[in-house]
Amino acid sequence: MTKRIGVIGTPGKWSTETLADAFAARTGHRQVIDMGAAVLDLDAGRLTCDGVDLCQLDGLVLKKVAETYSPDALDRLEMLRLAEAAGVRVFSPAENVIRLMDRLACTVTLRNAGIPMPKTIVTEDEGAARDALEQFGSAVFKPLFSTKARGMVLLEAEAPDAGAQIAAFKAANPMMYVQQKADLSGEDLGMVFLNGDYVCTYARVSQTGAWNTTIHSGGKYAPFEPSPELIELGRRAQAPFGLTFTTVDIALTPEGPIVFEVSAFGGYSGAQKGCGIDAAALVADHVLAEVSK
Rank of each mutant, 00 (worst) to 15 (best):
D278A: 13
G276L: 03
L40H: 08
V7M: 14
A168N: 03
L252C: 09
K63F: 00
T247Y: 13
Y221M: 10
S269T: 15
V65M: 04
P223L: 07
I8P: 03
A85W: 03
K13S: 14
G274R: 04
A113M: 09
I5A: 10
A203R: 12
A149E: 04
G9S: 02
A203N: 06
V88C: 08
T214K: 09
L62V: 00
V108Q: 15
M101F: 09
A85Q: 11
G36P: 07
A44Y: 00
N212T: 08
S146A: 13
M35G: 07
A25L: 12
A210G: 08
Y69N: 13
V61I: 13
Q165L: 06
L133Q: 07
R236G: 11
G36E: 02
E255W: 02
A182F: 01
G276H: 04
Q165D: 03
H29K: 14
D188R: 09
A113D: 12
P254Q: 10
M191K: 05
D125F: 06
E261M: 07
D161K: 10
E134F: 14
R103Y: 03
V32H: 08
S185Q: 15
F241W: 01
R130D: 01
D249P: 06
A182P: 02
F169C: 14
A37F: 06
V262T: 10
W14F: 14
E124R: 14
R236K: 14
T214C: 07
M152Y: 00
V291H: 00
A289W: 01
F169Q: 14
A251S: 07
Q272I: 12
G6C: 06
T16D: 07
F260K: 05
L77A: 04
Q135G: 12
F141Q: 09
I5Q: 02
A25H: 11
G196T: 10
G267W: 01
F169M: 13
F193S: 08
Q31Y: 15
